[in-house]
Design a protein around this nucleic acid. Structure first.
Lengths: 352, 352
DNA sequence: TTGTACGCGTTATCAC
DNA sequence: GTGATAACGCGTACAA
């Protein structure tokens, strides 16, 4: 039997009109409630829509509206569960508005497109706006160029030079309280495994740690700080650098700028026979869902990932509706709160 | 100062043509290499494109092409890191083709849209195709209806009733080998925390476990099987059900159908003072990046999440290019291999 | 209340 | 080689 070649073609408004025996405008009126139409005819139109399985073609629609009811989402990579959670929050805001989300992950493993490529791709769709999580390779120019197509909302990370609306959490406060907690436990030989120095969050967290060091009378300049890339592997690598020294000069606690690196450090410590928290303390930042179930349970700073995303999405839609320019005019959101989660991965420093 | 209201308007081909002093067709020829054009004029056109910052409007383009160079990605939720990895793989395939990916997560926390809503939304964009990870609430009807808009490729999960092309891994083999490994360690009182019984992967894994039970002379019907939902929480809940019995009837090992539930079980066991693997063995399925760094390191079955996604994406694009109908005609992919990762979370059964 | 005609930005067909 | 011109599907003034 010869399966008929599917036409891959859809009913158009014209088809609906013909089927219902009315004109195009009548159909349009019914579909958008944009004009008066007699009850019986309206019924006939809706019936035709059902029978033909008609779905409006968004392409034609956006040609008129000059904007697609679709927003962009740029995230460095999805492998970081924290980012995945933020994205999920944005998606939820979008689907609540019947909008679609187009996803770009320019820094994922095997990355192919530059930031400029991504920007061009998004521009070509005339998206209504974009939510952007900037990463280490993000080109601020490319982000700025996106504002020409609609509002751009930064989330989680910030680009201080650009003055774009951003939804972030209070990284500095969380970091300060975390370091204070560590110090309060009695540690004096502490080391920091920081994030990429060109990232705002990394700068804020480091500043927060140093606030606490200074407040405790510890010279911030004497605390070793190594720069990681927020990935698990660099946590291991840098832990090795920090711990592979004579025991009496070895730090008693590692303050990691995110959970992924903390996990890497934890793993390295275990591999070289160091017990956490007895021999070494390790703390993180983010409070990934997994961190709670690690052994030892990781002491970290909780960030409301899901909320961050959801509110960024809402802010974006508000800007789209309000017709804001995306140049900082739209209502700004105060930093969301962060909260230290005290668990088991740091105790008193080991006795000398 | 009154900031000029941004026009939110872009250069069109007409603008480019005017600026370059040529006709629309010439511009189109240059942009698509679809016709002959003299070198000097081509140069003028490209110059005009640069000056005006022109980006082709995909809406107008798809109106002609009758299809958007955008594909859909439906995933139950992004909170499951395994799904996030699959999605990242698909995204990579898409971006390698200058295509965009629109993301839907209908089962995410606070889910709003039904499967049918999602289908309608995707249809309205005249997407070129869809990659679908089905979940517990997925309506096969809705998935099937998507085939009217273009090829649909299932990934990770399968819908046996629909006979759609799918990229999956060999769940049954992995499960069989995992159970065999557990049995080889000497365990006889084993229990299974399975996945949702309406999911193909859950059925396959259970079948695999039972293959191994039978092969080892253990009556599969006498092994308790509880049905979880693949989330961490149900791992804890079901572990409690299984373990909260007199010690002599308690299972010595918990075979969990995915890592998330295994982690939940691990957490529960620890909370009630059971040591893994000494008092109780726990194994999972998926090999999430985290599982390797848990304490104890989780014995599990590795699935190539990233590859699964990438190949699903490639298969989809092949189908789009080949003009396949998406009704099983397109080239099918053999199940990807799965591999048991023997680590520390299961040892010999505790002495009676 | 309903129908007609035009424009949105792009590509493709046809004359020149 | 190059330039008019007609679709593509939809929304909406404007006319009936």
């Amino acid at each position: 039997m010869t399966d008929e070649q599917p036409r891959r073609t859809w009913a158009t408004m014209k088809d609906v009109a013909r089927h219902a025996g009315v004109s195009l405008s009548t159909v349009s009126y019914v579909l958008n409630d944009s004009g008066p139409v007699a009850a019986p005819r309206r019924e006939r139109v809706l019936e035709a829509v059902r029978v033909l399985g008609y779905t409006p073609n968004e392409a034609g629609r956006s040609l008129k509206r000059r904007a697609m009811s679709t927003v962009g989402m740029v995230v460095p990579e999805l492998s970081n569960p924290y980012f995945a959670l933020v994205v999920e929050g944005v998606e939820r805001a979008a689907s609540g508005r019947d909008a679609l989300l187009v996803l770009c992950a320019p820094e994922a493993e095997g990355a192919t497109g530059s930031a400029e490529t991504v920007a061009r791709l998004l521009r070509s769709r005339r998206l209504s706006g974009v939510v952007y999580i900037t990463g280490t390779t993000t080109d601020p120019e490319a982000v700025a160029s996106l504002t020409s197509l609609g509002p751009v909302v930064l989330v989680d990370e910030q680009l201080p030079a650009l003055n774009l609306p951003a939804v972030v959490s209070d990284n500095r406060k969380g970091a300060r309280e975390m370091a204070a907690h560590v110090l309060a436990r009695g540690h004096t030989r502490v080391a920091v495994i920081g994030g990429p120095s060109n990232l705002w969050t990394a700068q804020q967290r480091l500043a927060g740690y140093r606030d606490a060091f200074a407040a405790a009378g510890l010279d911030p300049q004497r605390v070793p700080v190594l720069e990681g890339d927020y990935r698990e592997r660099s946590g291991s690598v840098l832990a090795r650098k920090l711990l592979d020294v004579p025991a009496d000069r070895r730090p008693t606690v590692l303050i990691c700028a995110n959970d992924l690196m903390a996990i890497g450090a934890l793993d390295y410590a275990r591999n070289v026979g160091l017990t956490v928290p007895d021999d070494l303390g390790v703390v993180g930042f983010d409070d990934l869902p997994f961190s709670r179930v690690l052994t030892p349970r990781l002491t970290t700073v909780r960030q409301p990932a899901h909320d961050l995303g959801r509110r960024a999405g809402e802010l974006l839609f508000a800007a789209i509706d309000g017709g804001s320019t995306g140049n900082g005019i739209m209502e700004t959101v105060p930093p969301l709160d962060t909260e230290v989660q005290i668990r088991d991965s740091v105790g008193a420093p080991p006795p000398v």
